[in-house]
Measured scan of single mutants.
Amino acid sequence: TTVHVNGVTYHFPNPEEAKKFVDRVVKEAGLTVEVKGNQWDVE
Rank of each mutant, 00 (worst) to 15 (best):
1 T>Q: 04
1 T>G: 02
1 T>A: 07
1 T>H: 06
1 T>I: 15
1 T>N: 04
2 T>V: 11
2 T>E: 04
2 T>R: 06
2 T>C: 15
2 T>W: 14
2 T>K: 05
2 T>F: 14
3 V>P: 00
3 V>F: 02
3 V>W: 02
3 V>L: 04
3 V>Q: 00
3 V>M: 02
3 V>D: 00
4 H>V: 14
4 H>Y: 14
4 H>M: 14
4 H>E: 08
5 V>L: 11
5 V>K: 01
5 V>N: 01
5 V>T: 02
5 V>Y: 14
5 V>W: 14
5 V>E: 01
6 N>F: 13
6 N>G: 08
6 N>L: 09
6 N>I: 02
6 N>D: 05
6 N>R: 05
6 N>P: 01
6 N>M: 09
6 N>W: 12
7 G>S: 02
7 G>I: 04
7 G>W: 02
7 G>E: 02
7 G>D: 02
8 V>H: 08
8 V>K: 13
8 V>A: 05
8 V>N: 04
8 V>C: 15
9 T>D: 04
9 T>C: 15
9 T>V: 12
9 T>H: 05
9 T>Y: 11
9 T>M: 11
10 Y>M: 03
10 Y>V: 02
10 Y>G: 00
10 Y>R: 01
10 Y>W: 03
10 Y>T: 01
11 H>I: 08
11 H>E: 04
11 H>M: 06
11 H>C: 15
11 H>R: 04
11 H>L: 05
11 H>S: 06
12 F>W: 01
12 F>A: 00
12 F>C: 05
12 F>V: 00
13 P>I: 10
13 P>Q: 11
13 P>R: 10
13 P>E: 12
14 N>L: 01
14 N>F: 02
14 N>R: 01
14 N>W: 01
14 N>S: 11
15 P>F: 13
15 P>N: 10
15 P>Q: 11
15 P>G: 06
15 P>E: 13
15 P>C: 15
15 P>K: 09
16 E>D: 09
16 E>K: 04
16 E>S: 06
16 E>I: 06
16 E>L: 06
16 E>N: 04
17 E>Q: 05
17 E>T: 04
17 E>H: 02
17 E>M: 06
18 A>W: 02
18 A>K: 01
18 A>I: 01
18 A>F: 03
18 A>G: 01
18 A>Y: 02
18 A>Q: 01
18 A>P: 00
18 A>L: 04
18 A>R: 01
19 K>R: 13
19 K>W: 11
19 K>A: 08
19 K>T: 04
19 K>F: 06
19 K>L: 08
19 K>P: 00
19 K>H: 06
19 K>V: 04
19 K>Y: 06
20 K>P: 01
20 K>W: 05
20 K>Y: 05
21 F>H: 01
21 F>V: 00
21 F>M: 01
21 F>I: 00
21 F>A: 00
21 F>Q: 00
22 V>K: 05
22 V>F: 13
22 V>W: 13
22 V>T: 03
23 D>W: 05
23 D>P: 01
23 D>L: 08
23 D>S: 04
23 D>M: 07
24 R>V: 05
24 R>C: 15
24 R>S: 10
24 R>Y: 11
24 R>A: 09
24 R>D: 05
24 R>E: 07
24 R>H: 07
24 R>L: 09
25 V>A: 04
25 V>I: 14
25 V>S: 03
25 V>N: 03
25 V>Y: 12
25 V>E: 03
25 V>H: 05
25 V>T: 04
26 V>S: 11
26 V>K: 09
26 V>H: 07
26 V>P: 03
26 V>F: 14
26 V>M: 14
26 V>C: 15
26 V>N: 09
27 K>D: 05
27 K>L: 11
27 K>P: 03
27 K>Y: 09
27 K>G: 09
28 E>F: 12
28 E>C: 15
28 E>N: 07
28 E>K: 07
28 E>L: 11
28 E>V: 09
28 E>H: 07
29 A>H: 12
29 A>E: 10
29 A>C: 15
29 A>I: 10
29 A>G: 12
29 A>D: 08
29 A>V: 09
29 A>L: 15
29 A>T: 13
30 G>H: 07
30 G>R: 03
30 G>L: 07
30 G>Y: 06
30 G>P: 04
31 L>A: 11
31 L>R: 04
31 L>D: 07
31 L>T: 10
31 L>M: 12
31 L>H: 09
31 L>G: 13
32 T>K: 08
32 T>N: 11
32 T>D: 09
32 T>P: 06
32 T>R: 08
33 V>C: 14
33 V>K: 03
33 V>R: 03
33 V>F: 11
33 V>P: 05
33 V>Q: 04
33 V>A: 09
33 V>W: 10
34 E>L: 06
34 E>H: 12
34 E>R: 09
34 E>N: 12
34 E>M: 06
34 E>D: 11
35 V>W: 10
35 V>G: 05
35 V>A: 04
35 V>L: 11
35 V>C: 15
35 V>I: 14
35 V>N: 10
36 K>Y: 10
36 K>I: 15
36 K>V: 15
36 K>F: 14
36 K>E: 15
36 K>C: 15
36 K>T: 15
36 K>R: 10
37 G>I: 12
37 G>P: 13
37 G>L: 12
37 G>D: 13
38 N>H: 06
38 N>I: 04
38 N>T: 06
38 N>K: 03
38 N>D: 14
38 N>Y: 04
38 N>L: 05
38 N>P: 13
39 Q>H: 14
39 Q>V: 13
40 W>E: 08
40 W>R: 03
40 W>G: 08
40 W>K: 06
40 W>I: 10
40 W>D: 08
40 W>C: 13
41 D>M: 14
41 D>V: 15
41 D>R: 07
41 D>P: 10
41 D>E: 13
41 D>Q: 13
42 V>W: 08
42 V>N: 10
42 V>I: 10
42 V>S: 10
42 V>Y: 08
42 V>D: 10
42 V>P: 10
42 V>K: 09
42 V>L: 09
42 V>H: 09
43 E>L: 14
43 E>D: 11
43 E>N: 12
43 E>S: 12
43 E>P: 08
43 E>F: 14
